[in-house]
Design a protein around this nucleic acid. Structure first.
Lengths: 239, 239
DNA sequence: TAGTGGTCTAGACCACGAG
DNA sequence: TCGTGGTCTAGACCACTAT
């Protein structure tokens, strides 16, 4: 059972919903901290928690002396400020997203995978390879490895809403906490090029990601290849 | 004159210094929120602001019921969770960093630069091209454009401590607030390859970055090319 | 000057982890 | 059970922006 959400999360979710529905347009000013505190019957500090989360999430800009405003980001790409599913990352671009599972099997952990997941080489792991498409065009290939003990049976059933993160969370009770990700550039190899349905030899964004649960244990290790047409978008805040 | 730093920032800086000096080793537990509040003579909420900043900065892990612990990240690469200079980004790897200015001139803004900086095409801008080296090996090329009005004379003087950000901040009073960055993969062109002293045709991490001041105006637009040996490192938190 | 966000207090109760 | 971090209150004063 999900427990009662904290108030700052309720306020955060409300405002996100208003932005996504268009009730709050880009550049529109959000109600002041004091007004929101009255509306929700909470203290101003609680409202600030919600607004600071929205700010760190790149959904609003906070300007001392002026107010809090909805941010606009029209560009297509993947936004990675919070841990979320691939679909959520691309959601703001409003395109049609699809995910095709091209491999789902139990496998023996290669050295690199075992190391990342803190297993012994050869231990049994779930391996799930997916091609992500945007408006029918292949955008990324992801090769995910999940310890068998974390999610037995993962490869035998379809993913919840097509999302590995939602499946781990909803069906296996894994609470995801953070991910370490590295991104670099690489030349697309024939194996990956074939799955992405493009020519090999081109440039590709290549990433490694290890996702950790709330208890600090690695629960997923993924290799990713993203085509150059789908850049990674970041917002970086000053200290 | 810099004004008095807020207490949460003082506490944050203290702990960062202790981590960097080794007084707080990786995985070491930090004093509890209540203890820190007593030590600094502030309320617990103020301590929490400092610790949450450290957490979002990837320097510590906070575990409910257990405590706050220093995080370890041994890997080489660029870490981009906060807006900082290139040197700061690589600082944790402990290698020798150098920056070579290969071009410093006034130029007319091309369309893309003018658009990013909200200028008219042809307006005068500072252009500063630098090669970044790690232990003598070329790691990245950066081509930065700064509006003339923001920093007149930027190209006529050496950078403060070799850092464009510090120069803008200390000499021109520009308060940097956030940056929008995109990263994608590309094939290295001959012009950039020559400056990086590597062969063209290889994969390279290609980025665009627009940095904004506290007033919301763009103050810098930079093209970057980073070689694959120096991946971008990210920590992504759950919601 | 009025209103906004930024910082801070001195408490409170709760959820979680470990012994 | 006890100490930790998570959430929350009902105020306060300050810094900044816009009028």
């Amino acid at each position: 059972m999900p427990q009662r959400a904290p108030m700052y999360r309720v306020i955060y979710d409300d405002i996100v919903a208003q932005i996504q529905s268009g009730a709050l347009q880009p550049a529109a000013q959000i109600a002041s901290e004091n007004d929101l505190a009255k509306q929700y019957g909470v203290s101003r500090m609680t409202v600030r928690q919600a607004l600071e989360l929205l700010g760190s999430d790149d959904l609003v800009i906070r300007k001392q002396g002026s107010g809090t405003f909805v941010r606009e980001h029209p560009r297509r790409g993947r936004r990675l400020s919070r841990l979320r599913s691939f679909a959520d990352e691309l959601a703001s671009s409003g395109d049609h997203l699809a995910s095709e599972v091209v491999r789902a099997e139990l496998a023996s952990a290669p050295d690199e995978v075992a190391d990342a997941l803190r297993l012994d080489p050869g231990d049994t792991v779930n391996r799930l390879t997916r091609v992500r498409r945007v408006d029918g065009v292949a955008a990324a290939l992801q090769d995910a490895w999940v310890p068998y003990a974390v999610a037995p049976g993962l490869v035998r059933e379809p993913l919840a809403e097509g999302s590995l993160y939602r499946t781990l969370s909803e069906r296996y009770g894994v609470e995801l906490q953070w991910a370490d990700q590295s991104m670099t550039a690489a030349i697309l190899e024939p194996d990956e090029a074939r799955l992405l349905d493009v020519a090999p030899g081109g440039a590709v964004l290549h990433g490694l990601r290890t996702t950790f649960s709330r208890t600090g244990n690695p629960v997923e290790f993924t290799y990713g290849w993203t085509l150059p047409e789908f850049p990674l978008l970041l917002r970086i805040d000053a200290e």
